[in-house]
Design a protein around this nucleic acid. Structure first.
Length: 589
RNA sequence: GGGGCCGUAGUUAAGUCGGUUAUAACGCUGGCCUGUCACGCCAGAGGCCGCGAGUUCGAGUCUCGUCGGCCCCGCCA
């Protein structure tokens, strides 16, 4: 007999192949058994082809084909036939033809699958994850995986064309300062000591610049032991790159070229470059968030100066009062407004003040507090029209901005203000270098401790650290942070000064980053880079709403893999070898 | 650490005010069928109502706990 050789995939055959002898292999998608005639839709990764068992081609095969069931794996040999006009299936790429089976082999049987392998299937996600290998057979899921592969290929092509070289960096490495919680790996050969899995290859890529590699990139797994979200997994993939002799403009324009070519190649979307740029201060002022969705307008306005002396004490006493006018929002019901009030409370807001602009009247619980002067001030500042609703937040700037900024997005969805199939990238720049950590009572790096301050801002670190700006930039796409990077500090003295500001003393810096400080002393070139979150990028490009849809084997919200049941306990012997001992009751004490 | 939603045949869901034998669709099994394409028709099987307590004469339904899934806040340089 010998092994058959497949001649085509299941999406390939058409009118041009009529009368050819072909061999297809795949899974039984649907079986339509008419007794004396059986149709099988044969599926592989690429598509479906109808194969037909008829007595005039092979009566024996027809007899045996009665036993075929969903997801059985089979190989068929047959003749491509043109279908009569009235039997063409316009929904199928191969719908103009069918393959009349002359010979077939059952390659494997299948148990009845726990859910139907098709796109309109609606099984619980945990079930899909337990049987991920079945879930991935569905066209939409395999499509996502193929799409991701094409995207990565496009990224690699662009970077190689631009003189980047791909270099692997260690996975078993060292715990960096600050940042996220590390995943730790115990060392058998050095008992009591641990490797950390990289949160990013940050230090290695800087050292590669010191090594003269000039332009590095890597499609690389990174690990952060933090709580999960629909767009966050504990292990995720970055497109990581670093460039020598480049400033912000160099890195950002290279990034724009990369993203634009990616979108062009895999989605045929033209992105205008250079991308829009907003300073961090401007982003927060107008959008309330450092990841602004600029696909729609609906900006926030600072009205603190208008209501400074208001009779409404909440406004008068607040550090910051901001407002957002929603055109046509006057139709919102009391229930709607209550729901939005609950919504902003999630972000720490105490409440949500509002005014409906009616003909000759401002309808609002706070209208009675507002003077004529304040009304006209607000009217002008917010360009108020009849039928609008205005929402206010007053209080601490951080709460005001996040509450109103998130409400902005929510309302845009409600009022259908977000254009479809639009990709709106925006750079956010001029981030503060440091943030005050209230718990630890010290300044911490907003980006990471290797980020260079702006020229001249090093001196601010002594006098007014909060005012120092970083040479850092984030790339935001449709309200999602998809990348970020910075120009790095490239001399040892400056790096040490940065550590000092962060409260990392000389001996600690030396023991943790001696190698970097040393490397910076041997002619380190000026350099900077950026890292893109590949999973998130693919999620947005493929129009899915969860990162898990574009990852072959993702983890659940408790960071577990329901298929392999990782994490799991290990044997006492394994622990002994590693020199580890568990507490009597894990999770306590 | 916190807030919210969910858990009923293989799957997706319904299940009223706590009351007889827990429904439906799809899937599955058997039978019939030569032009279907999510084939059709006939018949049938299939349930620890997530798990554990409690209230009650009686719990899928009410209460508490617990396990699991999803969304969010905190967290994520």
């Amino acid at each position: 007999m010998g092994w058959w050789v497949r001649s085509h995939f299941c999406d390939e055959l058409g009118i041009d192949n009529v009368d050819q002898q072909v061999c297809l292999m795949g899974w039984v998608q649907y079986r339509r058994d008419h007794g004396g005639l059986i149709f099988i839709d044969l599926r592989d990764r690429k598509g479906l082809t109808q194969v037909v068992f008829t007595p005039d081609f092979n009566a024996q095969a027809l007899e045996e084909a009665h036993g075929l069931r969903s997801e059985y794996v089979m190989a068929i040999k047959g003749i491509v036939r043109e279908r009569p006009k009235d039997m063409i299936n316009p929904n199928l790429k191969t719908g103009e033809i069918e393959v009349a089976v002359t010979e077939f082999r059952l390659l494997n049987r299948s148990k009845t699958p726990p859910f139907i392998i098709e796109d309109r299937m609606d099984a619980a996600e945990s079930l899909r994850l337990r049987y991920r290998y079945l879930d991935l057979r569905r066209p939409s899921m395999s499509g996502n995986i193929v799409f991701r592969s094409r995207a990565v290929q496009a990224v690699r092509d662009f970077l190689h064309e631009n003189d980047f070289i791909e270099i692997e960096t260690p996975i078993l490495t060292k715990s960096p300062p600050e940042g996220a919680r590390d995943f730790l790996v115990p060392s058998r050969l050095n008992q009591g000591q641990f490797y950390a899995l990289p949160q990013s290859p940050q230090l290695f890529k800087q050292l590669l610049m010191c090594a003269g590699m000039d332009r590095y990139y890597q499609v690389v797994k990174c690990f952060r032991d933090e709580d999960l979200r629909s767009d966050r997994q504990p292990e995720f993939t970055q497109v990581d790159l670093e460039m020598s002799f480049a400033d912000e403009e160099g890195v950002m324009s290279m990034s724009e070229g990369l993203i634009a070519s990616l979108f062009k190649k895999v989605l045929d979307v033209d992105m205008e470059t250079p991308f829009t740029r907003l300073s961090y201060a401007q982003a927060v002022a107008e959008y309330g968030l450092d990841k602004p969705d600029i696909r729609f307008d609906l900006k926030l306005r600072d009205v603190t100066h208008i209501v400074k002396g208001s009779n409404f004490r909440l406004f008068a006493e607040a550090d910051l009062v901001k407002a957002m006018a929603v055109p046509g929002g006057g139709m919102l019901s009391r229930k709607d407004i209550d729901d939005y009030t609950d919504f902003v409370k999630i972000y720490g807001a105490r409440g949500l003040a509002w005014i409906k602009i009616r003909e000759n009247e401002w309808q609002s619980p706070i209208a009675k507090f507002l003077t004529e002067e304040e009304r006209s001030g607000l009217s002008i500042e917010l360009d108020l029209q009849e039928g609008d609703i205005v929402f206010f937040q007053a209080g601490l700037p951080e709460v005001v901005n996040t509450a109103l900024g998130n409400l902005r997005v929510r309302l845009a969805e409600r009022f259908d203000l977000i254009p479809r199939d639009v990709f709106a990238p925006v750079w956010v720049t001029d981030f503060p270098l440091l943030e005050w950590d209230e718990e630890e009572k010290r300044w911490v790096a907003r980006h990471h401790p290797f980020t260079s301050p702006r020229d001249g801002h090093f001196d601010l670190l002594k006098t007014d650290p909060g005012q120092a700006l970083a040479r850092a930039y984030d790339l935001v796409l449709n309200g999602n942070e998809i990348g970020g990077g910075s120009i790095r500090i490239h001399n040892s003295r400056d790096q040490q000064r940065m550590f000092e500001v962060l409260g990392i003393n000389e001996s600690e810096a030396d023991s943790k980053f001696g190698f970097l400080l040393q490397a910076l002393e041997y002619g380190a070139p000026p350099h900077g880079g950026v890292a893109f979150g590949l999973d998130r990028l693919i999620m947005l490009m493929s129009g899915t709403s969860s990162i898990r849809e574009v990852i072959a084997f993702p983890k659940t919200q408790k960071a577990a893999c329901v298929m392999t049941e990782a994490p799991s306990q290990v044997s006492p012997g394994q622990l002994r070898e590693l020199g580890l001992k568990l507490r009597d009751k894990p999770g306590q004490g």
